[in-house]
Amino acid sequence: MSTEPLVVAHDLARTFDVSPPWLNRVLERKPRVLLHAVDGVSFSIERGKTLALVGESGCGKSTVARLLVGLYAPTRGGLQFDGQDAHAAFKTPEGRKLRRRIQMIFQDPYASLNPRWVVEDIVGEPLREHGILSGKAELRERVGELLKSVGLSPLDMSKYPHQFSGGQRQRISIARALATQPEFLVCDEPTSALDVSVQAQVLNIMKDLQRQQGLTYLFISHNLAVVRHVADQVGVMYLGRLVEVADKQKLFAEPQHPYTRMLLDAIPQMKHTGRSRTPVQGEVPNPLNPPTGCAFHPRCPHANARCSAERPKLLSIKGVQVACHAVEEGRI
């Protein structure tokens, strides 16, 4: 197996124009308004490994997911997949082959499945679209195999999505994503809409599939307990930027960035029963008007004048990538 990372994102950025209509801007003399949803994100994922992206709502995690699968084009930066420029390839006829190798599992199993289609059509659609199988008998056989691989029965093929529970629907979504035999799966909070007991079942299925098929995952979540279960590496995002990237064990044992520490302090732990939890302090700033310097400085207990004036770079410190002046200067 190659030692080169399968996925390499370099300085990925995506800006959305959220300005009022042109006539309103002219009459009210207002400038254009740009939202920097993702602002210079870089990471790599080795084959067969899982990188988890965590952070509060609105920090740009889902936008990164859509950039990786080609649903959004980047405003800046690029994505290398297996050594080739993925976004350039997506625009060519050869891009269909690349799309077979990259698939996505969406957050809401109630919204991501067509309610008018039976399961056979939902799971079989990628097989038909990519010309992998065309005969009805072999298509049914393959859909049955995919359903069995995620813990469902081939007899479920004739049912509609409304006849399943949330956890079962998400299994159907996973079966559909696996239909093209992808190497890389982008999972956008795939268990957040499910009950805790069902979450564990779906996560175990995903872990088993990763072991059996050598899958590579980008796993997006705001639940650090889930991340601890599935990830090999963790990237912490804040307001469109990565503030810390580390191996899972290192991040949970020795978090470096003040924001990472704040998130981990908010997790209830059995050994600390009876001790009051530390809530996450403050609120995420308005992304349309972000703070100067380090975006986290209004909420940071270690902030100084440099933090409010100069944006920190993601540097390698003690074997961890971290963007923090206080960590860099040894103040924490």
Rank of each mutant, 00 (worst) to 15 (best):
H10A: 10
H222S: 12
V119M: 08
R331P: 07
E138C: 04
S134A: 10
P287H: 03
Q210T: 07
C294E: 06
W22G: 07
T216K: 01
F16G: 05
C294W: 02
Q181E: 15
R32F: 09
D188H: 00
T180G: 07
M104E: 06
V38Y: 00
P109C: 05
I220P: 00
P182N: 05
F16M: 09
N204H: 07
Y72R: 08
T216A: 03
F81R: 07
H130V: 09
F252R: 06
P182I: 03
G319I: 07
D85E: 15
Q213F: 15
G214R: 10
V143H: 03
Q163F: 07
S197H: 11
P154I: 06
K271W: 14
G124M: 00
K148L: 13
K313Y: 08
Q281M: 14
N223G: 09
P126N: 10
P190Y: 00
A86K: 02
H325V: 11
H302C: 11
K30F: 09
G55E: 00
S192K: 03
N286W: 00
D11P: 08
M270D: 14
A175N: 08
E328Q: 13
G135I: 09
R99F: 13
A323V: 00
R311S: 11
Q163N: 10
G319Y: 04
S276A: 15
T292G: 15
R299N: 12
R142E: 11
R128H: 10
G167R: 04
V18F: 04
L23I: 15
Y217T: 03
Q168R: 05
L155Q: 15
Q107P: 04
V26M: 12
E254Y: 12
H130I: 08
M270K: 14
S57Q: 09
G78N: 12
Y217R: 00
T273W: 14
P301C: 02
H87N: 14
W117A: 11
K159M: 09
D265F: 10
V69L: 01
A88Q: 11
G58M: 02
L218G: 06
S276W: 14
V26T: 14
G330D: 08
Q321Y: 13
A86N: 05
P268F: 05
P258R: 02
G48K: 08
S197Y: 11
V322C: 05
G293P: 10
R101H: 12
P161I: 00
K318E: 13
A326K: 02
A193C: 04
V234A: 01
E328R: 09
M262G: 11
K30P: 06
L263E: 08
T3D: 15
K30H: 11
I172K: 01
Q201P: 06
D108V: 02
